[in-house]
Amino acid sequence: MYKLNTEKMFYDIADGQAIVINFETGMYYGTSTLGSMVLDGLIQGKAPKRIVDSIQNNKDCVTDIDQSVERFIDALAEKEIIIADDQPYNAEQLNDLVVVDGDYSLDLNEFAEVQDILLADPVHDVEADMGWPTLKEED
C-alpha cells in the first residue's frame, strides 16, 4: 500500500485538483484531474489494480491506462509524495473514477515559483533588535 509522505508533504484537493507541497524543498505539485483522482485513491489506501479497474469502467478508456497509472505512481514515489506502507489495502468499495471529456492524462506538474516563500521562516529569519516585520536593505 502507499500513503502520503506526511513527514515532507502537505496535500489537499481543491475543486478536484490535488495540490501537494514539499516543505523541505519548497516545491509544489499539481496534477491533472485524473491524476488527482488516482493520488487521492492511493492516499485512501486503494490498490493500484482497483484504481485501474475503476478507470477502465469508462466506455472510452484508453487501452494502456494500466501502464499510464503505473508510470504516474512511479513519478509520485520518485518525488517522495507517496511512500510504501506495509498496511493492507483498503477493501472498501471504490467508486468509478469518471473521466471527463476523454482526458486520460496523468500529469504531475512541478512548480518552483513560490519556493523562496515556502522555505522562508519569518519567525527565525529576523534580527531581534530590528523588530518584525522589517525588510532587509539591499547591498
Rank of each mutant, 00 (worst) to 15 (best):
M37C: 15
D60A: 03
D129K: 07
I117V: 05
Q17Y: 04
L135P: 00
T63C: 05
A14K: 15
D116R: 03
L135E: 14
K8P: 01
I51V: 12
M9S: 05
K136L: 06
P133T: 03
T31Q: 07
T63P: 01
A18N: 09
N22I: 01
T134L: 05
D103L: 09
D74W: 10
S54V: 11
R71P: 03
Q67E: 15
K136E: 11
D64N: 15
F111Q: 15
Y28H: 06
A112T: 11
I73K: 09
S32N: 10
M130G: 00
A84C: 06
L94G: 04
K136Y: 02
E110W: 03
L39G: 09
A77H: 13
I83Q: 15
G30A: 11
G102Y: 07
V62S: 02
A120F: 04
D96Y: 05
G131W: 02
S105P: 11
N22T: 04
Y2R: 08
L119R: 01
L108K: 12
K3M: 08
V126Y: 01
L135Q: 12
S68T: 11
I83F: 02
M27S: 01
Y104W: 12
R71I: 03
A84L: 15
L118P: 00
I55D: 07
D53H: 04
I43R: 10
S68K: 14
D12L: 04
D125M: 10
